[in-house]
């Protein structure tokens, strides 16, 4: 295999990996504030795509506005979900919350089927025009949007976590639940905000990827699984690790297509997920940390 082909696969891997990274960030953020894996995270990706398609095709709004509606609308749904389904369970029992998110996933995808219909939908690319040539490989213009917006999301998150009082409180809270109260922030509010952020990131992933991959009411779970595998691969609870996990997973997938066969592309992330869980549950970047029995 020549260098241009390899580059082609690498670019495809990074493109998918960026999407996984966005979803993985969502998992990580909710995990940090609740200690729970949000099984509905993938549905946020679906909702972002569906809402923006609806705003663009049905309402006839311009694409940028439709994209914004996709992201913000998903964030609102994330908040509503948290307020109605997560917050009332006051004891925060992880098993209960996990099962609630499982129910939420089922509910959201099927409500989307009723509201938006069962068929596959798509968006036009953000900038029209032929693919770019790059060192012998081709790159869709939409991929540049995916790279750029993912990078922007990571920068915004980093600034939020390190520069704002709220962000710092969220970081403190993920280390120690009572710490949030000490810095004067209501931990309940942090959970709501974490759902808003996670949903917005998922929504963003859905919006940017829909022009390339289309979307439908039932795509959520596969995005969820990929994103989750990425989060675990990097190491749960650490945003940087989530991004790296996403990119690595995307590359692994496309290399498996390059060197094995495309049949097992979807199985790769699952096998990676199981292997990491069993062999190195703290992830690539996670510290060993003694797990108290």
């Amino acid at each position: 295999m020549g260098a241009p082909e390899l580059l082609q696969f690498a670019l495809a891997g990074l493109k998918n990996g960026s999407i996984y990274a966005l979803v993985a960030l969502g998992f990580t953020i909710v995990y940090a504030s609740t200690g729970v894996i949000n099984f509905a995270q993938g549905e946020f990706v679906m909702l972002g795509g569906m809402l923006s398609v609806w705003a663009h095709s049905t309402l006839g709004l311009p694409l940028p506005l439709a994209a914004l509606i996709g992201i913000l609308g998903t964030a609102v749904i994330g908040v509503v979900f948290e307020l109605l389904a997560i917050r009332p369970r006051k004891d925060g029992d992880p098993l209960a919350l996990i099962i609630i998110t499982v129910g939420g996933s089922l509910l959201l995808s099927n409500l989307a089927r009723h509201v938006f219909g069962p068929s596959e939908r798509s968006l036009p690319a953000f900038t029209a025009g032929p693919s770019l040539r790059f060192l012998g490989a081709t790159l869709e213009r939409q991929s540049l949007w995916i790279f750029g917006l993912t990078a922007l999301a990571v920068v915004v998150l980093t600034v939020f976590y390190s520069r704002t009082r709220l962000g710092r409180a969220m970081r403190a809270c993920s280390i120690n639940r009572t710490a949030a109260r000490l810095v004067g922030v209501d931990p309940k509010r942090l959970v709501t905000i974490s759902f808003a952020l996670a949903a917005a990131l998922g929504g963003l992933a859905g919006v940017v990827t829909t022009p390339l991959t289309q979307t439908a009411f039932n795509v959520g779970s596969s995005f969820g699984i990929k994103g989750f595998a990425a989060a675990i691969l990097g190491g749960l609870g650490n945003p940087i690790a989530a991004v790296i996990g996403g990119l690595v997973l995307g590359l692994l997938e496309s290399m498996s297509i390059a060197f094995l066969s495309s049949t097992y592309k979807d199985a790769i992330s699952l096998v990676v997920l199981l292997l990491v869980l069993f062999i190195r549950p703290q992830g690539l970047l996670g510290r060993g940390g003694r797990e108290k029995v």
Binding site: F228, A267, L273, L274, V293
Partner: peptide, 18 residues
């Protein structure tokens, strides 16, 4: 400790489907 089983079974289910 925790709920790793839920995630492992999820992955297992998808692998088996493939």
């Amino acid at each position: 400790k925790g709920h790793y089983l839920a995630m492992a079974t999820l992955a297992f289910g998808e692998i088996m489907r493939i």
